[in-house]
């Protein structure tokens, strides 16, 4: 009877959630006190900005590009938020809107000149880092009060970070996976020629996806600085690789517009927990990034086994 329910297809879509659940259960087993409102909040706080950055990366991957600058972009947004946004709110808001505009223009540039996105975004990572250094030469600044208040919101029963992650995942899921427009956007990654022949502007699609990535990058930076209260030019550099890993962990693929927003959020949470898991095992923090790599390989191996089972049918 279960054989009918547990088809490889179902298994594959459940895999990200299952790996997160296994990790959570393992942590709760090692440290039962983590299974509380406070404990979960502490464990998953930083997952919110990482999840937002992962979704930004997912939008870019949907149209078969790759963003190697998202980490330095999130850092730059954090720097703006910790300086201009709290001192001169209007200038801060304009600067953030300008950032999104730059992302949209990058999308247009990459499409029109048919440039390799890897190299363009590598170049942009220098630009964002340089701008952050100019704005905030030494770590510091203060996040605006409202941002700190929002990120430290005490919601009843379920911690804010969990609610935020669920809401973010669902909103993007509805927009990208369930709407007609979302299908076109994803189609541009799957078969650009067909989408173009059907009368859609590939330029507009590319610009939309890059602008969305810019938006989510801005949100990630704001969420991050709301938690840390001060910023630093290098604060989020590791988000670049984490966001790619998160998308893939959540079931996304590099080509063909095959992505999963909910999976990406779960992937980001899994990677965030991987570090804490080690400290509960009392292993040296030296292995923290190693654990993230190991989990990535493990989940991908499981997915491959499921795919193989599917092919055998």
């Amino acid at each position: 009877m279960t054989a009918g329910l547990l088809t490889p297809r179902v298994l594959r879509s459940l895999l990200p959630a299952l790996s997160l659940a296994v990790l959570l259960v393992a942590i709760f087993y090692l440290q039962p006190r983590a299974m509380s409102y406070f404990g979960i909040n502490l464990l998953l706080n930083l997952a919110v900005p990482i999840a937002l950055a992962t979704l930004a990366q997912m939008f870019i991957l949907t149209v078969n590009d790759l963003d190697l600058s998202i980490g330095s972009f999130v850092s730059f947004v954090a720097c703006i938020a910790a300086t201009w946004l709290s001192e001169m709110p209007l200038l801060g808001i304009l600067a953030l809107l300008g950032c999104i505009l730059v992302y949209a223009l990058l999308g247009a540039l990459i499409y029109l000149r048919d440039l390799p996105s890897i190299v363009v975004t590598l170049g942009m990572s220098f630009v964002w880092l340089g701008l952050s250094v100019l704005l905030l030469p030494t770590p510091g600044g203060t996040a605006p009060g409202w941002l700190q208040a929002l990120m430290k919101l005490k919601t009843p029963l379920v911690p804010f970070c969990v609610i935020a992650a669920i809401v973010i995942g669902l909103v993007v899921h509805l927009g990208l996976m369930r709407s007609a427009h979302g299908a076109v956007l994803r189609g541009a990654g799957g078969n650009p020629k067909a989408v173009a022949r059907a009368g859609w502007s590939l330029l507009r699609i590319k610009v939309t996806m890059f602008a969305l990535a810019g938006c989510f990058g801005v949100l990630a930076g704001l969420a991050l600085v709301g938690l840390t209260t001060s910023a630093d030019a290098n604060i989020a550099l590791r988000y670049t690789l984490l966001s790619i890993a998160g998308v893939i962990l959540g079931g996304g693929e590099f080509v063909g517009g095959r992505v999963s927003p909910i999976g990406a959020v779960i992937g980001a949470m899994t990677l965030t927990l991987a570090g804490s898991f080690l400290s509960f095992l009392r292993l040296s923090p030296d292995w923290q990034i190693g654990a993230q790599g190991a989990i990535l390989i493990l989940v991908l191996a499981l997915r491959m086994l499921i795919n193989r089972a599917e092919a055998r049918r």
Binding site: G123, M124, S125, F126, V127, L129, G130, L131, L134, L135
Partner: peptide, 12 residues
């Protein structure tokens, strides 16, 4: 800061 920004722009 300027150096990093210029490097990025010139690479692009």
């Amino acid at each position: 800061g300027i150096r990093l920004v210029m490097t990025g722009i010139i690479i692009i």
